[in-house]
Design a protein around this nucleic acid. Sequence first.
DNA 1: CAAAACCGTGAAAGCGCTTTCAGAGGGAAG
DNA 2: CTTCCCTCTGAAAGCGCTTTCACGGTTTTG
Lengths: 339, 339
Amino acid sequence: MNITLDDIARRAGVSRATASRVINNHPHVNPAVRERVWQAIRETNYQPNLPARSLASRRSQVIGIIIPQPIHTLFADPYFPLLIEGIAHVCNERQFSIMLDLATTTDGDPYRHLGRRGFLEGAIVASAVEDQFLLQWLAQETIPVVSVGRITSQQAIPFVDVNNRHGARMLVEHLIGQGYRRIATITGPMNIVAGRDRFAGYSDALHAAGLPVMSELVVEGNFSEQSGFTAMQTLLRLVPIPDAVFAASDMMALGALKALRAAGLSVPGDIGLAGFDDIPLAAAMTPALTTVRQPIGELGQTAARLLLDRLATDSLAPVTQRVMLPTELVIRDSCVRQR
Amino acid sequence: MNITLDDIARRAGVSRATASRVINNHPHVNPAVRERVWQAIRETNYQPNLPARSLASRRSQVIGIIIPQPIHTLFADPYFPLLIEGIAHVCNERQFSIMLDLATTTDGDPYRHLGRRGFLEGAIVASAVEDQFLLQWLAQETIPVVSVGRITSQQAIPFVDVNNRHGARMLVEHLIGQGYRRIATITGPMNIVAGRDRFAGYSDALHAAGLPVMSELVVEGNFSEQSGFTAMQTLLRLVPIPDAVFAASDMMALGALKALRAAGLSVPGDIGLAGFDDIPLAAAMTPALTTVRQPIGELGQTAARLLLDRLATDSLAPVTQRVMLPTELVIRDSCVRQR
DNA sequence: CAAAACCGTGAAAGCGCTTTCAGAGGGAAG
DNA sequence: CTTCCCTCTGAAAGCGCTTTCACGGTTTTG
């Protein structure tokens, strides 16, 4: 019923093997023959059968994206869409398909063994909370994995990351330079490397300036707007309140801003505010948010390239690659010390 | 190297056929044998090879979700995540995987023929702009498709939808009941049925009340917050300005609200505002938004069930099913006529 | 000018599963 | 005691492709 490679071969007067070579762009095929085969393909509008191809070649041309978070939280923050877009861009170029593992992100069995089952050739894992499921999966899975952001306990996994610590430090040093002294921070989740690193950068800057890190000024969030709102409310109960706040993500900064507004405080008039990520929204906020830019799309592209390059070279050597992308301080209006 | 079904069969002392029967829960297998096979599977931690299974059975257990929009717009609105979540829920229950076709939503070839290529067993298409690509794809693809929202020109496609027209009418009648007379609307895209229907409901309500539909009071948006903002700015240039605005999506209502605030107008003090969708944000806005609730998650679940049921019955008869889900008027604080 | 290298091609052997078919055995029906 | 019909099982034939191997023919090399 469906057109198969045999049909094409017969139509072009060649063997199945040759037809396969043409489709896969293998060398050593007479140009005239090559053209005959292509013509047959065009005439019949032939579409190769993917499962058959996967079975025979052991390559599915599909990679998975694994983000261990509920799907709605996943899309509340523009970070992930931008990351995925970067990945998708590279995958499209190289004719790979992407499977967003939604089972992981909803209520299904997390981490079904799509790799061992021959479905995925590789996977990109992002924003990895180091939970038991993830580690178990990584241990059992046999396909190449690239991580966006490091996973502490799995040093063998290639990753692409930004220098969170350095970026955060630059930012907080900027705050100190503006004259702020009682600087609070709303951190990311401390079970994620990015969360810990940005906090470390905050500490670094304070230490370097001879300022103490006071635990009352440190509140843990989870990168979401809501958590930023709540954390800010906590900070506002301090006496005196902080004179500036470094939120470890722009979305948390947004939440914090809303809490400040609700409390009748103005930014930067009454209190300075800074974020991290430089999502598009940051520039559009009032006041425009001072933040640290991380090249999110590039992060995705790089991760995809790392993975696809690895898949292309059949060398089984575990190429442990690490790529660090630079961050950049973006100074806007949300933390200007008023005299 | 990898464990195959043959290994399992040998280990359990049965034929490959029997092992396959056990795995697929076929009847007519001796319980004792069944248990032996399961034990072998457990002991070896066997994972069946998916491509091989697809090839042999012609069923991949994967469905596609196709939303013909750039990925970042896709996630700016909570509508799609909620829809996807609904679909994912049902798919997880039935051991199906979901492929979010990101090639469609980014810059790749839209609509690769994943179905004809044996990769997808079925597809759900949502928010379908009736462009040439979509129609061409629908014409060529041979797998079952279910649509969320109708596609005018393709009446044969089963769909699940809400009664947009009726919902919009109820809402606008509520506005009229509040005493508003100069009621503007920011419509959805008019090349999508939902956009046209909500506008039709608006017209219905005005006609029924003997009010004219004035073209200056109708501005087309595209469901996005940004478009709501822009459209509201347009409406604010009218003299006099409208006394109420019906935005055909909550996100557009949010955009409109921001434009009103920027113009120094208060809602509902100076102007009434209403939306459509009842996304979680609607209740959280200040003022809380009066809107029309559509059961987004249920929409996704129903679509998935329709598709999966269809796949389960091998009957080739094109079962054209239509499901309409109810909408509900949700009255909050954004359009209360002040006396 | 023989040997070696290379090019272009087809036959055939799988990849790991599902599914049909046939058959053995046992109990119920005639 | 046949005949028929279940239940359970294995052999075998694919599903549609890739890839190895072998082989003739043509070039290049020493």
